[in-house]
Design a protein around this nucleic acid. Structure first.
Lengths: 232, 232
DNA sequence: ACCTGAACACCGTTCAAGT
DNA sequence: ACCTGAACACCGTTCAAGT
């Protein structure tokens, strides 16, 4: 009887923090940051606005929680049992983050915000820890740990954010036509720039159209790893 | 008489696009992106909401225009008559952008957005052109122009964005006390992390507290330039 | 403890109307 | 051409009230 009473009390809680965050991520994925409104969320969850504030707090806190959830999942996916070379581990972590931002375009802006606003939060600290351990494993002298790790992390976040747009346009279009069209349009716009003012951008318009996102991302990482190797 | 008539007609235009953008930048500097509301702007300019839309368009377009104005000024400041070494020019451009984001913290998020949303806009193209010319001058083979330039640009934007928070806290506090306190708080939080889960972050907490933003920013650039030098 | 939903103080944007 | 400002359709957040 006590059990029954407890159950009926428990059954009243139909919402959980996790459920709310999951629905928020769906809204963000579908329509970007603007699509996450408290009202859209309550409608999807068939509840009232107060329930959101009871379980997670303000909209900003919900945005933080969504970011933490997605990044934690992306980092957790990289727990290789065999211990690979540090360079491979860095590349793999970078590609995990690359993939996460490609799937969740809203992360690009949100990560910038989190790094600035919450430097001791789980997102900032989680990414630093993962990359930093590999920097240490590379044999970088301790005095350069912070600097070398920061450089890698900054590059990864910056690079990955710009590639989002390309990835986004690739989605929803059959056979990558959307992506090709988008890159073609950008390349054409670059080609049409004033020849005196923008000779360099005009010169690389072709490379920009033909480039492979992941390949170029990895070549940037390779370049930085080369620089780090010289610190040893 | 015709002059007088013309003058009276002209005098009716009391607002200009430039004026609106300048006021918008002031609001953004004072209170961040949230402080730029159409109503706050019309109040400061003693006008109606319609006037904003007549001269510049929507709030998003105003945000774009503000970003373009600040970045154009930052890039224009770097027109050295003597032609310095490419490495120096890259460092100088990077520091110009560093300074611009330090003064206008809202740029951090806004630049990410612009690069993704308007890859052929003046901001994206202007930064690429400035950095790219120096990459070319470094003797990098043409096949690597786009890749090397992208790596530098991504690092600069990523790194500069994270340092904003530190710079911001330095402002308004006498004798840099705010910045030191902020860094001390972050370092303390890093130090308090779980020893098993975050050994690396705990190990670099001290370096993080002592680090000099500009120095570290430049050492990241030096690291990438080292990597680029090996492409030659 | 958990949730509802009306109410409040804001938003961005439009557009008929004025000069 | 340039500008006004009421009106509209939204926001995020709070909080008394319910169970």
């Amino acid at each position: 009887m006590t059990t029954r009473a407890r159950q009926s009390v428990r059954r009243r809680q139909v919402l959980s923090r996790e459920q709310i965050i999951a629905s928020a991520i769906e809204l963000l994925d579908d329509g970007g940051e603007g699509a996450l409104t408290v009202r859209a969320l309550t409608e999807r969850l068939a509840t009232g606005t107060g329930a959101i504030y009871y379980h997670v707090g303000t909209r900003d806190e919900l945005l933080d929680a969504a970011t933490e959830t997605v990044i934690a999942a992306a980092l957790a996916a990289r727990t290789d049992p065999a211990s690979p070379a540090p360079e491979d581990e860095i590349r793999a972590t970078a590609l995990s983050l690359f993939g996460a931002i490609a799937e969740h375009a809203w992360l690009a802006t949100q990560l910038t915000t989190q790094f600035a606003r919450r430097p001791s939060g789980p997102v900032t600290v989680g990414i630093f820890e993962r990359i930093g351990r590999q920097v240490r494993a590379l044999g970088v002298p301790q005095a350069a740990w912070f600097s070398a790790t920061s450089t890698l992390v900054h590059y990864i976040l910056g690079a990955v954010s710009q590639h989002v747009r390309f990835e986004r346009d690739a989605h929803g279009a059959p056979g990558d036509v959307g992506r090709e069209k988008f890159l073609g349009d950008v390349a054409a716009a670059w080609q049409d720039l004033d020849a005196d003012a923008y000779p360099f951008v005009r010169a690389i318009a072709g490379q920009m159209r033909e480039h492979d996102d992941r390949e170029q991302f990895l070549s940037g990482i390779a370049l930085i790893l080369d620089g780090i190797a010289r610190l040893r």
